[in-house]
Simulated scan of single mutants.
Amino acid sequence: MGIVSVRFQQAAGVVLDRGEVIERTAAFVRSRLHSDSSGHDWWHVERVRGLALLLGRREGADEYITELAALLHDVSDYKFNGGDLDEGSRVSYDLLRDLGESEACARSVAEVVRNVSFTGAGSVSRMRTIEGMVVQDADRLDAMGAIGIARAFAYGAVKGEAMFDPDQAPHLHASEAEYLARDGSTINHFYEKLLLLKDRMNTESGRSFAERRHRVIEAFVHDFVAEWRLEDLPEL
């Protein structure tokens, strides 16, 4: 996704209420992501939005900032924009300012968008606010469980990854740069990211939600490898 011009310009003196800002933000994001086939589409954003609001209510987060950040968290994913980790935050900030939001609000959302992504096993979360924590937890929850498995293979197909290469060991990337340069199979991605997410939840609610989804992907990887090695077949 390349840089896009923000399309909403408010007439002088016109102030949108929060509901209108949410609606226009959602419309903007949906227009950008509606044709995605990598698992980072509008419906991923909608699921993250719902999860983030649920987690946020349990954790006492500001609902407005949480919803805006969840809507915008993948507006320009670094995995598709050439590796620019800052572009999404710039687009988010400019959009919200053009919609008439305060600088403080726009900066709060942009900070979450900048730091939401997983960038390697050796990279630590930099979320400073509870809003950032619940959005990041929601995004990670959607990378787990049955939907997470489906999304992993959709992403691998778009990126031209092999489903599995038994000669290629998983690699726990030590830095953002190393993770950005990763070259591996989809099954390796489970070891390099998805199976690590349970222990990287920020909130108690996120950790609770992650338990079942982690077990789903654990069982899937176990069964996949067993079938690959023909270990699941009955003795003749």
Rank of each mutant, 00 (worst) to 15 (best):
residue 101 E to K: 04
residue 94 D to G: 02
residue 91 V to Y: 03
residue 117 S to H: 15
residue 80 F to D: 07
residue 107 R to D: 13
residue 96 L to Y: 02
residue 91 V to A: 08
residue 96 L to K: 07
residue 102 S to M: 07
residue 86 D to V: 02
residue 109 V to A: 05
residue 101 E to A: 07
residue 91 V to S: 02
residue 89 S to K: 05
residue 81 N to I: 01
residue 89 S to E: 09
residue 84 D to E: 07
residue 112 V to M: 05
residue 109 V to K: 05
residue 93 Y to R: 13
residue 99 L to N: 06
residue 85 L to D: 10
residue 85 L to C: 12
residue 114 R to W: 01
residue 112 V to H: 01
residue 98 D to I: 00
residue 82 G to K: 11
residue 85 L to N: 11
residue 115 N to L: 15
residue 83 G to V: 14
residue 113 V to A: 07
residue 82 G to E: 12
residue 115 N to K: 15
residue 89 S to M: 02
residue 91 V to M: 08
residue 87 E to F: 05
residue 104 A to P: 10
residue 81 N to T: 02
residue 83 G to D: 11
residue 95 L to R: 05
residue 82 G to Y: 09
residue 82 G to M: 11
residue 116 V to H: 15
residue 89 S to I: 01
residue 92 S to E: 03
residue 111 E to T: 11
residue 96 L to I: 04
residue 110 A to V: 04
residue 109 V to S: 04
residue 117 S to F: 14
residue 83 G to Y: 13
residue 103 E to T: 12
residue 93 Y to E: 10
residue 102 S to E: 10
residue 98 D to V: 02
residue 98 D to W: 06
residue 85 L to S: 12
residue 84 D to Y: 04
residue 95 L to S: 09
residue 105 C to P: 07
residue 117 S to Q: 15
residue 97 R to H: 10
residue 94 D to T: 09
residue 108 S to T: 12
residue 106 A to S: 10
residue 95 L to N: 04
residue 100 G to Q: 08
residue 111 E to L: 10
residue 106 A to C: 05
residue 112 V to T: 08
residue 106 A to F: 01
residue 98 D to Q: 13
residue 107 R to S: 13
residue 112 V to K: 00
residue 91 V to E: 08
residue 106 A to W: 01
residue 93 Y to H: 13
residue 94 D to S: 09
residue 98 D to T: 07
residue 99 L to Y: 05
residue 91 V to Q: 12
residue 117 S to R: 15
residue 98 D to A: 08
residue 86 D to E: 14
residue 83 G to F: 11
residue 98 D to S: 14
residue 110 A to F: 05
residue 106 A to L: 06
residue 91 V to L: 15
residue 108 S to A: 15
residue 107 R to Q: 13
residue 88 G to S: 08
residue 90 R to S: 00
residue 94 D to Y: 05
residue 114 R to F: 01
residue 116 V to E: 14
residue 80 F to W: 11
residue 111 E to Y: 01
residue 80 F to E: 10
residue 80 F to I: 01
residue 91 V to P: 00
residue 96 L to T: 07
residue 103 E to Q: 13
residue 103 E to A: 14
residue 84 D to V: 08
residue 90 R to W: 00
residue 108 S to C: 13
residue 105 C to I: 15
residue 92 S to F: 00
residue 113 V to W: 00
residue 92 S to G: 03
residue 104 A to D: 15
residue 107 R to L: 11
residue 86 D to Y: 03
residue 111 E to V: 10
residue 114 R to A: 10
residue 87 E to H: 08
residue 108 S to V: 08
residue 105 C to S: 13
residue 101 E to T: 02
residue 112 V to I: 15
residue 101 E to G: 02
residue 113 V to P: 02
residue 103 E to G: 09
residue 117 S to E: 15
residue 112 V to C: 08
residue 115 N to D: 15
residue 98 D to F: 04
residue 80 F to A: 06
residue 113 V to S: 02
residue 106 A to T: 02
residue 107 R to M: 11
residue 106 A to D: 03
residue 102 S to P: 04
residue 97 R to C: 04
residue 110 A to R: 05
residue 100 G to K: 06
residue 82 G to L: 09
residue 85 L to K: 13
